[in-house]
Amino acid sequence: METVLSIKNLTKRYGRLTAVNNLSLEVQKGNVFGILGPNGSGKTTTLGILLDVIRRTSGEFYWFGQEPTKEMRKRIGAILETPIFYPYLSATKNLEIVAQIKGVSKDNIDPALKKVELFDRKDDNFKTYSLGMKQRLSIASALICDPEVMILDEPTNGLDPQGIAEIRELIKSIAKDGKTIILASHLLDEVQKVCSHFCVLKKGTLLYSGLVDDIDKGIINVEVGAASGNLEEVLKAYPNAAKITEENGKFVVELKEGGAAELNKYLFENSIEASHLLTLKKSLEKQFLELLAESDNAA
């Protein structure tokens, strides 16, 4: 596995405030890496340091195993926060500037604009664009150098549901091309839907780093509902049940072992016919809130 980015003990202080605190991370080639954190947790600051627009206080980071230089940045397609372009220039002119900076051919501009479906508006000034179009143009600009790594910071910020879905599809299709994507977001659902790996930051400190697929592993919760009156008693007698809680007339059973099938069989043997049986997937949201709560308790 090739390491695209490695961060070692990165720290950024603004006077007394520590925006990034001793952060260490690794991103491998082909990962879709989500950086999660509440607003002000240091996501954008971290990405800003990685892209040389913010000066680090201490620590190191390496792109492709080497010291960061401007040549590295030419291989990265990145958008931080809001889309930034010259408002009085057309999409094509704006992308020409990006192409010149990155030292790539202007022939890449039209395909990139087509990919984000802005080709029809390519000669209109940037300031006439809607927010969704601006976001799409910044993705086009990140795509223009056929980057090995894409960095996206809140790419769906301020978009309507349709726009969010479009950007999400776009990210997925880019990821399918084998590109490494680093995605900062406070939208957990978004990260769960598109990312393979994720980490959680809070006040500049790394709380957790792991695989998105690992979230579901471990404890299984099954939601059960039935017309029968003695459901609760029967469930309490179930040897595999670790905990039973009632929620809106249904019961959530935390299982020590086995799954929904075994539970259903047990209920049936006890002459209860379940009208509702659902294995609850642990959402990233839940995991995220738990992590934040744990760190609050620890503090």
């Binding site: 892209l51 040549e71 030419k74």
Partner: peptide, 14 residues
């Protein structure tokens, strides 16, 4: 004011 200096540097200008 447009923050384009920031984007220029992100894009690969020193």
């Amino acid at each position: 004011s447009y923050k384009t200096i920031r984007q220029n540097i992100i894009d690969g200008l020193s």
